[in-house]
Design a protein around this nucleic acid. Sequence first.
RNA 1: GUGGAUAUAGCUCAGGUGGUUAGAGCACCAGAUUGUGGCUCUGGGGGCCGUCGGUUCGAGUCCGAUUAUCCACCCCA
Length: 420
Amino acid sequence: MSPIITAPRGTKDVLPQHTQAWQSLEERLRQVARRYGFAEIRFPTFESTELFQRGVGDTTDVVQKEMYTFEDKGGRSITLRPEGTASVVRSYIENSLYAAGLPQKVYYIAPNFRYEKPQAGRLREHHQFGVESFGSSSPLADVEVMGVARALFDDLGLKNIELCLNSIGCPSCRPAFQGALKAYFSAHAAQLCPTCLDRLERNPLRILDCKVDSCASLRDGAPLISDSLCDDCRAHQNGVTGALDAVGMAYSFDPHIVRGLDYYTRTVFEFVTSDLGAQSTVCGGGRYDGLVESLGGPATPALGFGMGLERLLLIIEKQGAALEAQRPDLYLVSAGDDARIPVFALTHTLRAAGLSVDCDLLSRSVKAQMKAADRSNVRYSMVLGADELSRGQAALKDMTTGQAAEVALTSEGILSALAL
RNA sequence: GUGGAUAUAGCUCAGGUGGUUAGAGCACCAGAUUGUGGCUCUGGGGGCCGUCGGUUCGAGUCCGAUUAUCCACCCCA
């Protein structure tokens, strides 16, 4: 049987057997964010196209080729959010969140949309947990944000995830570096791939992480950003590494990290792993000290990260780090048709009392009902027929041990038996 | 956007060089066990063989196209 309509390419249903893992993951994200003093923010799934053009950057691949953009019935250009930061910054400015005092620390769990070719760990709709911290230019803010990601990995018991770090300078020192880079690559233009020839004019930084062999070999002789950082940026970078050392967070420097979004300044970082197939980044972020002002807000230092939840779940699965599953409490089995309505009524009463209870809706045999109970991974079952209902007592069976004990057929009797 | 692989039951997969009613395991349903799950045994229901077209007396099988999935490049989380 082939369905007439299928889910759009690059999208995934989360089916009932997987939603518990998602819920449990989301719960942990919220707990960790709370521990670090981040409050949840929610924002629309679509925004004015201009927000991403100005925020993410016109020259980025995300904006140039990957956005779901359309015109609404009012003739406005609308885009499905390709990343979270621009939306958060827009909301921060529009709602004057700075008026409530700085720093403002927020987190979100939201879907993002990018028109990409799907593969392992890459979807057209994916979900991100992100945090943004507004108002502090201190390196401590950088390390606090990185700490949220690290705490989450630790909380989930994940191994083999490394923090890689770089600084890409600021508007006062980056132009000199870009100039040096441009001069260097121009002198070797013959060896550059077509994509990088294009990047030469638009964004020479991006040539640094090109994977084409000829470009990558040029990289070794290229100027290093660390050699052209201004005093402030250098001091900031030293502050970050110092604070990382102080809290005992391991990291490594990677001078080739260049994030694909234009708004980053100074600190950029990624948490990478080899457990994601061809993808390696599970979390990427950095500082964007100029973004709030460029979108019309007050000059505000800020930074944040985005973490891919599908990728996180891939790592969890690969590493066998189980997320706990909740078991239903009780399954009430009807023995004989006369018992079905009283059993349904008792199910209703016990649900009102707060228990997770189920009963048969298919007029099945006792055996089939027991099988259904077993399959649902329920903790207890109880078979109720005319005899039990008239006695007001029944055997409560522990589905794990197989042992049974008589209990009274009242909310109180069952609740107290289940509490044991 | 570029390249490679794949497409048969709900799932995982068999189906030499074309030839009657397309198979297995798992899962599902029923029975063995008038009211007790997991183990075992028996039986059963389930398939336009991704889609469209071509070659052929005849196509799950060969050819073309198309769509989808997976993988890699690119990009990114």
